[in-house]
Nucleic acid binder design. Structure first.
Lengths: 147, 147
DNA sequence: CCGAGAAACTTACAACTAGAACTATTAAAG
DNA sequence: CTTTAATAGTTCTAGTTGTAAGTTTCTCGG
């Protein structure tokens, strides 16, 4: 069951395999979460990253803040916001206190669409089956892994 | 700290925010793991997905099995294996028992490169800081979410 | 004040990714 | 045995992603 084709299983190698499985699980779950978003977002004519961005835009954000929340590079946020702006869902305004930055603000259409999106995303989340205590321990462990 | 710009925080909305944070953590950790692989793999002239594929090829696999282990679509596995085959690291052989399937086998160069890769990937894994007990609970929780 | 360095954002590019459509083969039902 | 459905793999396309390079603006030490 556990990669029997590997060489002799010293402690170090066994530990490496456990870590690999753990990473694989995190990765698989991440894909499943993205898939969940993608399946729901298509009903609103949004792609998964577009939906994620819209979800995070509960209040005004800079590009950098959005990129951090989406766990992606700023260049990628630029790409996604370009699409949302083309659809008239979000607006790039000059930042009031920093002329380098942009302030992302939802348009009225963006606000109503976001409300619908939040409702849709709530149904059948992959994390729904956990008790509150389990969610806390999981949150704690994940945060620690994030260095 | 916790999205104070959201509307009135009913229990349902608060729960939704917790779930969102949890998904965000999983996603962020997944990106960090991929980044870790990418940074190490570049020393071997491999991209992150190529390194992941090579890592999983400890024994012969079909394309479908590899895609499952990489948590991606088969079409994507085709793309990655094309690159590894171009580099002479892996070989597509006819499957002995199923003429539809291919059997992926590492070449001698692939085997030696994989050994070096495993050594390199072991250093400073994002999951290294956990005790064995923590790893087990984490594994348990992640598996349940995957269902 | 001013120059060096850092930060925010964008652009261009190369790579990865999922989904749909397609062929070839197998398995299952009749 | 034959028709039907399911599976393995590939190709094609549109969309996403990270890196590197470049511009503008801010910050801070002198």
């Amino acid at each position: 069951m556990t990669s029997s084709h590997e060489g002799s299983a010293t402690d170090a190698e066994a530990q490496a395999i456990v870590e690999r499985n753990l990473c694989g699980l995190v990765n698989a779950l991440s894909r499943q979460i993205e898939q969940h978003v993608r399946e729901r977002a298509v009903a609103l004519n949004l792609t998964a990253p577009q939906a994620t961005a819209l979800r995070e835009l509960g209040g005004p954000l800079t590009m950098r803040e959005l990129a951090d929340r989406m766990a992606c590079e700023p260049s990628n946020a630029t790409f996604v916001i370009d699409r949302l702006e083309e659809q008239g869902l979000v607006e790039r305004r000059p930042h009031p206190r920093d002329r380098r930055a942009k302030q992302l603000v939802l348009t009225p259409e963006g606000i109503t669409l976001r409300e619908r999106l939040l409702e849709i995303l709530m149904e059948g989340s992959p994390m729904a089956g956990f008790t509150q205590e389990e969610q806390i321990t999981l949150q704690h462990l994940l945060r620690r892994a994030l260095s």
